[in-house]
Amino acid sequence: MEIKNIYCVGRNYRLHAQELNNAIPTSPFLFSKPTHAFVEAKGQTIQLPGDQGAVHYETELVFHMARNYEPNLPIEALIDQMTIGLDLTLRDVQDELKKKAYPWLLAKGFPNSAVLASWLPFEGLQDMTHHDFTLEKNGQEVQRGNIKDMIFDLPTLLEFSAKHFGLEAGDIIFTGTPAGVGALADEDALVLKWKERMIGDCKISIAAK
């Protein structure tokens, strides 16, 4: 699976924005991650930094562009694959960047910060509203979300991304996280589920360098 640009949508679930005391956005709010952030969750141990404060998980639906964006094409012609991802965040670093009004790259772009489960065929938005995506940590569900609860829907996100950054075949977009984000600890076991079925898992290793 070719991955070019990694776009991420911030604050796209109302309850998540509220839990972090952020204002509800009035237009899509995007940031990006380098391709070095990408890692697949295939049951392995994933190394994360332990010397920069708390590392938080944010579980999200992720979509893969099948072709270059064209405004008149239906969503089913633009998207060919979907999965669940983890937008990992150095929360303490992010809080300091926010205070200085600096970009978030240091908090969002570190290696292994874009974790993806296995890709699945995209079956259309209508079907997706009937199913939740979840994250389990050490056997306990910690996040559950549904695409119907997004503030900005997928067509809006694609149009916005294409207009401001360009959106082409191979680009992927993280679409925002529901409430329930929290810190990871060394040896945490994570399971990503779609339609109550595991499509990705990994173990976390956090150690100071």
Rank of each mutant, 00 (worst) to 15 (best):
residue 3 I to R: 09
residue 5 N to E: 14
residue 5 N to V: 03
residue 6 I to G: 07
residue 11 R to C: 05
residue 11 R to A: 13
residue 20 L to H: 12
residue 20 L to G: 05
residue 27 S to F: 12
residue 27 S to V: 14
residue 35 T to Q: 13
residue 41 A to Q: 00
residue 41 A to S: 10
residue 42 K to V: 00
residue 44 Q to N: 12
residue 44 Q to P: 00
residue 46 I to S: 05
residue 46 I to Q: 06
residue 48 L to K: 07
residue 48 L to W: 08
residue 49 P to F: 11
residue 49 P to G: 07
residue 54 A to N: 09
residue 54 A to S: 14
residue 58 E to C: 13
residue 61 L to Q: 08
residue 63 F to D: 02
residue 69 Y to K: 03
residue 73 L to S: 09
residue 78 L to A: 03
residue 80 D to K: 01
residue 82 M to Y: 10
residue 88 L to G: 05
residue 88 L to A: 05
residue 88 L to N: 10
residue 91 R to S: 11
residue 93 V to R: 13
residue 95 D to P: 00
residue 96 E to L: 14
residue 96 E to V: 07
residue 97 L to G: 04
residue 99 K to R: 15
residue 99 K to V: 11
residue 100 K to F: 03
residue 102 Y to T: 00
residue 103 P to Q: 11
residue 106 L to T: 03
residue 107 A to E: 05
residue 107 A to G: 15
residue 109 G to R: 04
residue 110 F to T: 06
residue 112 N to K: 10
residue 113 S to Y: 06
residue 113 S to H: 06
residue 114 A to R: 12
residue 114 A to V: 12
residue 115 V to H: 05
residue 116 L to Y: 06
residue 118 S to P: 00
residue 119 W to H: 09
residue 122 F to L: 09
residue 127 D to C: 00
residue 129 T to E: 15
residue 132 D to L: 00
residue 132 D to F: 09
residue 132 D to I: 02
residue 133 F to V: 07
residue 137 K to G: 00
residue 140 Q to T: 13
residue 141 E to I: 14
residue 142 V to W: 02
residue 145 G to T: 02
residue 147 I to L: 14
residue 149 D to E: 15
residue 149 D to W: 05
residue 154 L to G: 02
residue 156 T to W: 01
residue 158 L to G: 03
residue 158 L to K: 07
residue 162 A to T: 08
residue 165 F to T: 03
residue 165 F to I: 04
residue 168 E to I: 00
residue 171 D to N: 14
residue 173 I to M: 14
residue 179 A to G: 04
residue 180 G to A: 11
residue 185 A to Q: 15
residue 185 A to Y: 12
residue 187 E to D: 14
residue 188 D to I: 01
residue 192 L to P: 11
residue 193 K to Y: 01
residue 198 M to V: 15
residue 198 M to P: 05
residue 202 C to F: 13
residue 203 K to G: 01
residue 203 K to N: 06
residue 205 S to Y: 02
